[in-house]
Design a protein around this nucleic acid. Structure first.
Length: 334
DNA sequence: GAAGCGTGGAG
DNA sequence: TCTCCAAGCTT
């Protein structure tokens, strides 16, 4: 790749960012390495608009690394409830534990130290370094991949893209460059459309060599997975169990599966609802029996469980489709 | 290296 | 309604 083209790319993006960048995003105000870290984890495979309310809630609860240090995994998962890819929340817990143990409670500034934290890979470490610390490390997210492929006019492989991103990343103004190229990818040069008129790279771009939509080799069919839950409700409280299998929703709280057979004699009212829900690798068909009971019984299980009051639901990590059913039931019950 | 891991928005 | 896919990392 020509050096001139690299120089042009960085220069144009930096200038564009200074005028048109999305500086109003919550993680771009009062920037700290802690907040950049949290935002970058939330933004993995997740769009900006989705992240914003979760980020605000998280920072309101834990405004600083110091405040996060005391949090439990459950606390962090609860703030992640509905955002998906829950391993990210577990890794935030593990990372802050490592920060406490190995880095005296201070977020590391050295690139390899940042990269050593759970949940932080090459690209996220690059983003934290360049955005929060102004150190010129490349990133390679979906935006950068797309913009580079189109600008240089070739469908590069992963390694070529890393090399290219490294060459294109400027030594100066890396803060503006890194955020600018992501903004351009998210606003102007998206996967489904190209607003070339608005693009600062248009006079030297080779995107006409790259078709907008890529062909799909084959479409993978996800298997269907059936779930049967019994949502027990007693005096405005829900009985929830902590899920411990790794398949999906590991560590989240869901209704009973088979643990409450002895409740059959205490049923006050009962109705059921069916919901379908798509995970990235499974199609779920969920049947939930919603059972109001009039008496408490002992529960025969080794799995962790608790009764959660209506108004405490937001403090528990519950999968999105289950939370919808609960909210729906709550609306009917009042 | 490929599969696993959630959810919701866009077209 | 359906398909794609998004500020990726881990195993």
């Amino acid at each position: 790749m020509s050096k001139n083209k690299n120089t042009y790319l960085a220069k144009q993006i930096v200038a564009w960012y200074q005028i048109n960048g999305r500086k109003d995003l919550p993680w771009r105000k009062n920037i700290s390495v802690y907040k950049v870290w949290i935002s970058e984890i939330m933004l993995q495979q997740t769009q900006v608009a989705t992240v914003i309310p979760y980020f605000k809630r998280f920072i309101k609860e834990y405004p600083s690394l110091r405040s996060l240090i005391k949090a439990s995994e459950d606390d962090i998962l609860a703030l992640w409830s509905g955002l998906g890819f829950y391993r990210r929340a577990k890794n935030i817990f593990l990372a802050k534990e490592k920060i406490k143990q190995d880095f005296k409670g201070r977020f590391p500034k050295n690139f390899d130290d940042i990269l050593s934290l759970p949940g932080i890979g090459q690209s996220t470490a690059g983003a934290i370094s360049s955005i929060a610390l102004n150190n010129p490390h490349p990133i390679l997210d979906a935006n950068v991949k797309r913009v580079l492929k189109r600008f240089y006019g070739k469908d590069f492989n992963e390694k070529e893209l890393w090399d290219l991103s490294k060459m294109a990343t400027p030594q100066k103004n890396v803060f503006e460059y890194t955020q600018g190229i992501m903004d351009i990818g998210a606003i102007i040069c998206t996967s489904k459309k190209k607003d070339c008129d608005l693009c600062p790279l248009k006079s030297n771009c080779s995107s006409k060599n790259i078709p907008l939509a890529k062909k799909i080799a084959y479409k993978k069919i996800n298997p269907t997975h059936h779930l049967t839950y019994k949502l027990l409700i007693y005096k405005k409280k829900y009985l929830l169990f902590k899920k411990t299998d790794k398949t999906f929703w590991d560590g989240l709280w869901v209704p009973a599966e088979g643990q409450v057979k002895n409740y059959i004699k205490n049923i006050k009212t009962q109705h059921s609802t069916k919901v379908t829900h798509k995970l990235s690798h499974l199609n779920l068909k969920i049947n939930i029996d919603i059972i109001h009971v009039n008496k408490l019984e002992s529960i025969r299980t080794n799995s962790e469980h608790k009764w959660v009051a209506f108004n405490e639901i937001e403090k528990v990590a519950i999968p999105a489709p289950i939370k919808k059913v609960i909210n729906n039931e709550q609306n009917y019950s009042v």
